[in-house]
Computed example of a mutant assay.
Amino acid sequence: MTQPSWQPWQGSGVPQPWQGGQAPQQWQGGSSMLASHADRERAVDVLRAGFGEGRLEQVEFDQRIGQAYAARTVGELALLVADLPLGPLPHPAPVTPVPRTFQAAPRPRTNGKAVGAAVCGLLCLPTFGLMGLPAVVLGHAARSEMRRSGEAGDGLALTGLVLGWLSVGGWALVLTLLLIVGLAAG
């Protein structure tokens, strides 16, 4: 099969590297920089893509591959692939949203009053129960807000309520005992 006349090496009279002729020392429009292994592999990839698309025949492809591996300069490699497209263009991956099934569910915000109830409940021990009443009030307020708004923190509010009620119950027991002792003594 003859090559179409539009190809750059047709009729130029200059022997091309893949045609088995003497390769020029430097490509006229390119670089005389020495080619690396990666440069040669990129040129071979372009040649393979051109062969796969039917732009090269088997014999010409084999000649160009041999010349690509034997090329010393980047200019010689550029001449080997000058009449070919740069290979298949990568198609950008379509952006597909992640299904809701695999997305992490957003965590609800923790209610501030529930945190306050837990802190007051824990402070009941070092303050001898003085923080029990604020823990109970904050715990009940937090649980009613969480039912309406769907916020998180029910465990914190419950902790504050339990510790607060234990503190209030302890103080009620102490005051009752003091009252009984006061009435019995006096």
Rank of each mutant, 00 (worst) to 15 (best):
R109S: 07
L179S: 14
L125T: 13
L183E: 08
Q103H: 02
P108H: 03
L86E: 13
L80W: 01
P108G: 02
A68N: 05
R64E: 05
Q58L: 15
L158H: 05
H37C: 07
P134M: 08
P99H: 06
L56V: 10
G54T: 11
T110E: 08
V115T: 14
L122R: 14
P126F: 01
W27S: 15
W6M: 06
R55Y: 09
D62W: 03
W9V: 09
R42C: 04
L122T: 09
G132M: 04
Q103G: 01
R147T: 10
A68P: 05
T110A: 04
T96V: 15
T101F: 01
D154W: 01
R48S: 11
A70F: 02
L138W: 08
L130C: 09
T127E: 06
H91S: 15
L47Y: 02
P94G: 08
G155N: 04
H37N: 13
A78P: 01
L123S: 04
R100W: 03
C120N: 12
D45N: 15
E145N: 07
A49G: 12
T2V: 13
T176W: 03
V115N: 00
F102E: 12
L166V: 11
Q10G: 02
P94A: 14
G66L: 07
G11P: 10
V81Q: 02
L47N: 07
M131I: 08
Y69R: 15
H140Q: 12
L178V: 15
L122C: 12
G20P: 06
A105Y: 02
H91Y: 03
P126I: 03
L47A: 08
D45C: 05
G52A: 15
A23D: 12
P108D: 06
R143Q: 15
D83G: 08
G20I: 07
Q67C: 15
L177F: 09
H140F: 10
Q58M: 11
A78K: 07
E57L: 07
G186K: 02
I65A: 02
I65H: 00
E76K: 01
R143S: 13
P24W: 01
R55Q: 14
P126S: 03
V115E: 10
P94L: 13
L79F: 01
A93I: 14
C124H: 02
A38G: 08
L130W: 11
V168Y: 02
G170I: 07
G121M: 05
A185D: 05
A35S: 13
L161N: 08
A35W: 02
L125S: 13
H140R: 14
P90W: 02
L161K: 05
P92A: 13
L179A: 15
Q28A: 14
A172C: 13
F51G: 07
A172W: 00
E76M: 11
G170H: 04
T73F: 06
P97F: 06
W27N: 12
L80H: 01
A49Q: 10
E76F: 00
D62Q: 13
L86W: 00
L179K: 03
G29E: 11
G50I: 08
L158K: 09
E41T: 10
V136T: 11
C120M: 14
G30R: 06
W165N: 10
A172G: 14
L56C: 08
S12Y: 00
G11T: 04
L79C: 11
L84C: 04
P92W: 00
T127R: 04
A142V: 07
R55G: 10
G20D: 07
